[in-house]
Design a protein around this nucleic acid. Structure first.
Length: 569
RNA sequence: CGGGGCGUGGCGCAGCCUGGUCAGCGCGCUUGGUUCGGGACCAAGAGGCCGGGGGUUCAAAUCCCCCCGCCCCGACCA
């Protein structure tokens, strides 16, 4: 490809509405343009990256035994009514009617459509297992699309669905996909982690998320270097503390203290000169509409997904100020667990607490030396606060590490949720009819592109991993009006193409600085600069990542690149 | 949805508070020339009618009302 013909409108300035690096850089470097909120044009450079990502996904999925299909993105409402998700998915789905007033939706995912296909065509255990996937557009009418490609309303996803005769085989395929995903992200040259995850909206009973590590990521994870435990903080378990032996012997007398206007944990801590770990935080939640009090150590935070799971609830939210008064008869900011009108559940972090501070149940007063078991009863100790850096691994007790990441893949064991709802059954070896056991496996293709940039960039621009770079190498003649430079550059370019490289030549008649800036911004892994020593047949090979430069004979550029790649660049 | 902010040539922004002398700056674009290893310089040009609608006024980018679009934030006091 010749740069003079390439549609890659680069910019010096970031768009005003971009916040994070991937959004700014993909726009500046001419990969994407916004059409409307959450909707993007993908320009040639972006399309090349997407296609390379898809290629790796296809190769690995095919190698893993999955088969590609192409399903409609326009879904009839009947299928979604059948699974019960027409209402559940609700506002997230883009719904519309055809000319006959029939209801349709643009598919946010495809369990219904694929299950419909399989239930109609597969009747016997002999036809199982089956793993079908597609790479296509998905639509989700996000409440708030943001961060460019990261959370868009239309995006490209690879979604796979597998069908099995029994649970054991579904689990076998689950781990097959786990390994496949690991290979996929490894091939893409991304630093990632597979973590235990919450199953969320899709349902099912077992799941892993694949996160690309990046500081700007919206997902948080903890992992253990000793035993390999890794989990999303929405899922990560606390190691259950022991009840301290003889704690009763330490109990002191409850003391009522005046704390005028002091409500926040930080304020209480400062005012009384007592660390936050010695203060009890009491929150009132509505768990599927029922008021429940949850106590947690003052310096810790409730992870609402864990809370929801602990109660097996659909919906969990904090009570409003008015609701707190109504349910407890106590003023917010000074809630006391003593004589509480609603059941008090306590996070694991409360177990070791002795002689702690709590609200007094009246305005402007707190209590010191409160103890659970003596002063109030805990309904049950539950694991609902967020696990963080340095805390003990729930498996082996070693200190956990914390990182942020971007969710690019998610695998689920679905069980029979959809097959039962939609009657996807087969006749087993023993002649009886059974629901198929399902799994589903997604990769956000467009999000992978954004995540790769989020993880790999510097002040100058993007630094693409070789495997998914829009071009592998760019040849830069510093001055196309000088014959020896132009001719040598053309020669090197043709040579690289012949050797199988995806090469670009910057044949534009602009100053060299301009070309260097563009090459860095676009992030092509290797730059071949043809300039000063063109007369001697020597060119300069620059590695985008790290900026290392080598002087190379013009005929040996390809070899040098291969050598560097083998060396792990 | 609630809260906050923004909308002015292709892009980034100033002007608005204190209506008129206001449509301006930088980048980009076109033409000519000089330049040519880290987003050059000089000169001459093209391009907006100020998100849309309504209103106030002798007069509106500027004041008022409505609408549309875009961006950011949204448990932690209990």
């Amino acid at each position: 490809m010749r740069f003079s013909r390439l549609f890659a409108p680069t910019k010096k300035e970031s768009p005003a509405d971009a916040e994070i690096p991937s959004h700014k850089l993909l726009t500046r470097a001419g990969f994407i343009r916004k059409v409307a909120s959450g909707l993007y044009d993908i320009l040639p450079l972006g399309a090349k990256v997407i296609l390379k990502i898809e290629k790796i996904v296809r190769e690995e999925m095919n190698a893993a035994g999955a088969q590609e299909v192409i399903l409609p993105i326009m879904h009839p409402s009947e299928l979604w009514q059948e699974s019960g998700r027409w209402e559940v998915y609700g506002k997230e789905m883009i719904k519309f009617k055809d000319r006959h007033e029939r209801d349709y939706a643009l598919g946010p995912t495809a369990e219904e459509v694929i299950t419909d296909l399989v239930r109609k065509e597969v009747k016997s255990y002999k036809e199982l297992p089956l793993n079908l996937y597609q790479i296509g557009r998905k639509f989700r009418d996000e409440i708030r699309p943001r961060f460019g490609l990261m959370r868009a309303r239309e995006f490209i996803m690879k979604d796979a669905y597998s069908f099995h005769a029994d649970d054991e085989d579904a689990e076998r395929e689950y781990w097959n996909m786990y390994e496949t995903y690991s290979r996929i992200f490894k091939r893409m040259g991304l630093e990632f982690k597979a973590v235990l995850a919450d199953t969320g909206e899709i349902g099912g009973n077992f799941s892993h998320e694949f996160l690309v590590i990046a500081d700007t990521g919206e997902s948080k994870l903890v992992y253990c270097e000793k035993c390999g435990y890794a989990a999303s903080t929405e899922k990560a378990a606390q190691r259950k503390p022991e009840v301290p032996k003889g704690r009763e012997t330490e109990f002191k007398e409850v003391e009522r203290v005046h704390t005028p206007g002091i409500k926040r944990i930080e304020e209480v801590s400062e005012f009384l000169g007592i660390p936050q770990e010695k203060i009890l935080k009491l929150l009132v939640y509505l768990v599927d509409g029922k008021p429940v009090a949850v106590a947690v150590r003052g310096d810790r935070e409730i992870e609402e997904t864990k809370l929801r799971n602990a109660f097996g609830a659909k919906d969990v939210r904090l009570a409003t100020d008015e609701e707190i008064e109504e349910f407890t008869g106590q003023p917010k900011g000074f809630l006391s667990p003593i004589g509480f009108k609603i059941p008090v559940y306590a996070d694991y972090s409360v177990i070791p607490m002795v002689n702690f501070v709590a609200g007094a149940g009246e305005v402007d007063y707190h209590l010191k030396n409160v103890n659970w078991g003596r002063d109030f009863e805990v309904e049950e100790f539950i694991d609902v606060s967020e696990v963080g850096e340095g805390e003990p691994c729930p498996e082996c007790g070693a200190p956990l590490k914390f990182k942020r990441g971007i969710e690019v893949g998610h695998i689920f064991k679905l069980g029979t949720k959809y097959s039962e709802a939609m009657g996807a059954t087969f006749v087993d070896e023993d002649g009886t009819e059974k629901p198929m056991v399902m799994g589903c496996y997604g990769i956000g293709i467009t999000r992978v592109m954004a995540a790769a940039v989020e993880q790999n960039h510097d002040e100058e621009g993007i630094i693409w991993p070789f495997e998914i770079a829009p071009f592998e190498v760019i040849v830069i003649p510093t001055n196309v009006k000088r014959d020896e430079i132009r001719e040598l550059a053309e020669e090197v370019y043709e040579n690289l193409k012949k050797k199988g490289f995806d090469a670009l030549i910057d044949d534009r008649n602009v100053r060299p600085g301009f070309k260097f800036k563009d090459a860095d911004l676009i992030g092509i892994p290797f730059q071949v600069i043809v300039g000063k020593k063109a007369g001697e047949g020597v060119v300069e090979l620059k590695v985008r990542k790290g900026g290392e430069r080598f002087e190379v004979e013009s005929g040996k550029v390809g070899e040098k690149i291969r050598e560097l790649l083998q060396g792990g660049i």
